[in-house]
């Protein structure tokens, strides 16, 4: 049976679901016309721009807090433009922006204008993201010298400690670590020649301190093998392919002291 009352009301006022769908479409870039039927005062139409701006600005500010070196390298205006494109492609899915932005380095790698003119930007962004991940990583215990006191030296090489959860290992075909480091640490940014070539880096957190360092290729291979679950002996073998002089005792002591190995967790 046709209910005239409901039909009349339906004509007077759009259904709430349409309201949300039309509003969301507007925030994604659709024009405002579809929202006219939801407004009591048509003079307020231009005010939808406030909400369109809030969405863009809030996300952009959150990303500026994460991608600090990228922001310094390209400047606020260009960064805002990049974010407008990124937001169209990858809008946030989580209501906490602390998890947003992982896809930004990948976006920069494929976004044509950046790819052509700023090939080092995506690698730098990967370092910004690694810093951010280390900052919020779980407070798990790193392996310490005291954990190994009872371990017979001959049994040590068979151990496979794994890397601490805050660690990100990175390798680059451009000197991205040098570019990133000077942009986050120096008041006067150093000139980095792209001819400097390949670089490897590690970013991690030791207690509450975010740390980062350049690696040589053998160190990268060694730590990458450890991170993949290989034993110290196996990882050493992998590293010596790149550097026959790779000193396991020295490297192990160095990285143990730096807190990059995963410790045994006790509740």
């Amino acid at each position: 049976m046709l209910c005239l009352g409901a039909m009349h009301r339906g004509l007077m006022m759009a259904e709430p679901r349409d309201f949300y769908e039309n509003f969301a479409a507007l925030l994604r870039g659709a024009d405002r016309d579809a929202m006219a039927g939801h407004l009591e005062n048509q003079n307020h139409m231009p005010r939808f721009a406030i909400h369109q701006s809030n969405f863009r600005v809030t996300v952009t500010k959150a990303m500026q807090g994460i991608y600090k070196a990228v922001m310094r390298l390209v400047g606020e205006e260009y960064f805002t433009g990049l974010m407008a494109e990124f937001l169209k492609e990858t809008p946030p899915v989580s209501s906490s922006l602390t998890h947003y932005g992982a896809a930004f380095p990948g976006f920069l790698k494929t976004f044509a204008p950046v790819q052509k003119d700023l090939p080092w930007l995506s690698p730098v962004a990967r370092l910004d993201w690694a810093w951010f991940c280390a900052y919020g990583a779980a407070n798990t215990v790193a392996l310490g010298a005291s954990d190994l006191q009872g371990v017979a030296p001959e049994l040590l090489p068979a151990r496979a400690p794994g890397l601490h959860g805050s660690c990100t290992l990175l390798r680059f075909s451009v000197p991205a670590y040098s570019i990133w480091r000077t942009n986050i640490e120096d008041d006067d940014v150093q000139q980095i020649a792209l001819e400097k070539g390949r670089e490897w880096a590690l970013v991690w957190r030791q207690d509450m301190q975010i740390r980062h360092t350049a690696l040589n290729r053998a160190q990268y291979v060694f730590l990458d093998a450890i991170g993949g679950g290989r034993s110290l002996a196996q990882s050493w073998t992998d590293a010596r392919i790149n550097d026959p002089q790779f000193d396991l005792s020295k490297e192990f002591a160095h990285w143990l002291n730096a807190g990059v190995f995963q410790g045994e967790q006790h509740d």
Partner: peptide, 22 residues
């Protein structure tokens, strides 16, 4: 307020329509 629809978070406090259904 609302801020999510269909898996997207709009990072704003958006006004809901003032209806009985809302």
């Amino acid at each position: 307020a609302w801020s999510r629809l269909g898996g997207t978070y709009f990072a704003d406090l958006l006004p809901p329509p003032p209806t009985r259904k809302t």
